[in-house]
């Protein structure tokens, strides 16, 4: 069972991800509605996995990945975004993300990503 921080500006999407993680036997220890909150909650909660949207107010997801990785190079972060263009994927992976899930996704895709990473 992994301790997970979910980051998305849409409450609906945070709820969906939480339901999926819980049904897979994991624990969602925190929810962040933008990149800055994710950085703060990461430092406080030290989760084993972070899911990160890209397009968010305050601080976008790629910037948040960079900040989290600056503080903890071992942080495990998976992008979860509707923006699937090659350049965006490349930028996120270069920032330190371990995988890139394009929305809309299903439970199987989330399960696959977690099994590969954790």
């Amino acid at each position: 069972m992994a301790r997970i921080l979910v980051t998305d500006d849409a409450a609906f999407m945070r709820m969906q991800l939480k339901n999926i993680f819980q049904s897979l036997g994991h624990e969602v220890v925190g929810e962040a509605e933008n990149g800055q909150v994710a950085v703060d909650l990461y430092n406080e909660l030290k989760p084993e996995l972070v899911t990160m949207d890209i397009t968010m107010p305050e601080m976008n997801g790629v910037e948040a990945v960079r900040k989290i990785k600056e503080n903890d190079p071992n942080a495990t972060i998976v992008m979860c975004s509707a923006m699937g263009q090659q350049q965006m994927v490349l930028e996120a992976i270069q920032a330190g993300a371990k995988d890139f899930i394009v929305k809309p996704f299903d439970q199987e895709r989330i399960k696959q990503a977690i099994e590969k990473i954790l």
């Binding site: 849409a10 609906f12 397009t55 509707a82 923006m83 699937g84 263009q85 350049q87 929305k103 809309p104």
Partner: peptide
């Protein structure tokens, strides 16, 4: 999907369609 979650879902559906369109346009 009802209530506040309906509004949040509507925003997210817009985000998914706009993101998908941006992805297509990149090609």
């Amino acid at each position: 999907v009802t209530g506040d979650m309906l509004e949040s879902f509507a925003g997210e559906l817009g985000n998914m369609i706009a993101g998908g369109l941006a992805t297509y346009l990149a090609t």
